[in-house]
Simulated assay, not measured.
Amino acid sequence: MFAITAARISFDDPLSGLEAGERPDPEPREGWTTVRVKAASLNHHDLWSLRGIALGQDRLPMILGGDAAGIDEDGNEVIVHGVVTEPAAPGRSPRFSLLSEIHDGTLAEKVLVPRENLLPKPPELSFEEAACLPTAWLTAYSMLFGKADLRPGSTVLVQGAGGGVSAALIALAARVGHRVYVTSRSEDKRARALELGAYAAVPSGERLPERVDAVFDSVGQATWKHSVRSLKPGGAIITCGATSGDASPAELTRVFFLQLRVLGSTMGTKEELAALTEMCVRTGLRPRIDRVLPLKDAHEAFRVMAAGEQFGKIVLVP
């Protein structure tokens, strides 16, 4: 089968480790099933894997990708939940990994996944739309509805318009009635954020006209100070990543004096993915797709993501 593989690790030149070509078909495994991939979407996790974050040299070559929608062995249209529960050693809690960390991922014509990781794909969603949900949109859904503890009509800030998680946060938060502020260095991305439903979009680092109840930050070092200083007393930062590096300094004086909350969030549960899918069906909300490319053009897709040129999700189709 044709697949996109991390063949080498390079922190400074991640795309140099990307290879496209034939790989063996998945081998049958008890409790697992093969899904014929109809669409897969990219995430920054794929780029970090090429840099050696969560993927070591000892596990290469590794097929990349954590998101997919396709057709299972029984002919059902399905969405793949990419969080895999690993067997627990006696006396220990189960470990979790994402597809492409220990088990081959979804940027291929076929992917082997645990049967319990499959959800029915509603006919209302295209394969391309469904493939955007399991990581970026699920992360945003879990941050907004599982971690933030917000009332309808709250004020929120989404740092860094453009990426899949940010675009999802803007759309979801606006849909439930929050006043959404967005930051971006790009005037074009600020305009697109307004199209998604943002209340206002400002240049990165610019002071907001009011303090907010919650900040959603996936950027880290470049935005952390602004995130902390944008909060009302008692407000919360919900963080799911640090694409610009770890935050330093941490602004701890302001955190404890204003009794701020810092909450971490990673991915989401299969139940949350099912609820998110249902929300999309019932409301008509759909993921913003920046572009759809053939799987063979994965290098260009990774280049666009690494350069931050996209707004929304990049989808690859075998």
Rank of each mutant, 00 (worst) to 15 (best):
R8P: 06
F11W: 13
P14T: 00
P14V: 06
L15V: 04
G21C: 08
E22D: 15
E22P: 09
T33W: 05
T34Y: 11
N43K: 10
L50D: 06
R51A: 06
G52P: 06
D58H: 14
R59E: 11
L60K: 02
L64A: 10
G66S: 15
I79E: 00
E101G: 11
I102P: 08
H103V: 11
V111C: 10
L112Y: 08
P114T: 02
R115C: 12
E124V: 11
E129W: 00
T135E: 13
T135F: 14
A136K: 07
W137D: 02
F145C: 00
V156M: 03
L157F: 06
G160V: 02
S166Q: 09
H178Y: 15
H178G: 01
R192S: 12
A193Y: 05
E195W: 11
V202E: 08
P203G: 10
P203Y: 10
E206G: 10
F216L: 01
F216S: 07
D217K: 01
D217E: 06
D217C: 03
S218Q: 13
V219H: 10
S227C: 08
S227N: 07
S230D: 07
I237R: 03
I238D: 04
T239G: 07
G241Q: 07
G245S: 03
E251W: 02
F256W: 14
L260W: 07
G264S: 09
S265P: 01
G268T: 02
T269C: 00
K270H: 05
E271F: 09
P287A: 01
I289W: 02
L293S: 05
P294K: 04
L295P: 05
A298E: 01
R303M: 10
V304F: 06
F311Y: 15
I314V: 14
I314N: 05
